[in-house]
Amino acid sequence: MIALTPDEWEVVRLSLKVSLVAVAAVTPVAFAIAYFLARARVPGKLLIDALVHLPLVLPPVVTGWLLLLGFGNNGPIGGWLNAHLGLSFMFRWTGAALAAAVMALPLMVRAMRLSIEAVDRRLESAARTLGAGRWRTFATVTLPLSLPGVCAGLVLGFARSIGEFGATISFVSNIPGETRTLPLAIYAALQVPGTDAQVFRLAAISVTLSLGALIASEWLARRMGAGQGGHVL
């Protein structure tokens, strides 16, 4: 194993930071949307479903541009967050995390929704007759039984975040140490002639990270699902 250079470390650290923050921040949102889509019976559900899936089908550059409009320092949301919470996304790693989160959202919602729909509602009514209110039923029956799908969603979201390119580069540009994650670093290296070795190393890191995430999550699912056979892969 050849040791990573300080520059490569910086890229890896930034990529992990961006992806982990993105997934951590978007998980509760994704679960809430997935639960709503799986359970609610209201008109307008289809519209929310379609909106959530938009980043999956839009050209990423359009998603990035829309983020720029909405979350730029002059955008309606970005301006408000900047003025009231001091939270700025422009040309910063937080913007890369936001782009990754938005791109990961549809995949996470899909995985979580499937597993929530698969929860046997008869078990929930059994819990109710045993004295559990709605919240306890949710926390002790619905949530644990949908955990395999939540884990699958986390892995998919993480993998998607690690690989996020188009929306990030059009939203927050390609700034070393701030928004230059692995794919953006590979892209930057590809622009310079004679950097084949560098590209190869970065690509190898990328494959290793993604593979490691998948294997770790499968191992986790097997441990957690003892007795029930939970799987992510």
Binding site: D120, R122, L123, S125, A126, A127, V141, P144, L145, G227, Q228
Partner: peptide, 9 residues
Amino acid sequence: FQDHRLFPH
């Protein structure tokens, strides 16, 4: 219940 409904987890 007829189908027992034991919590599988």
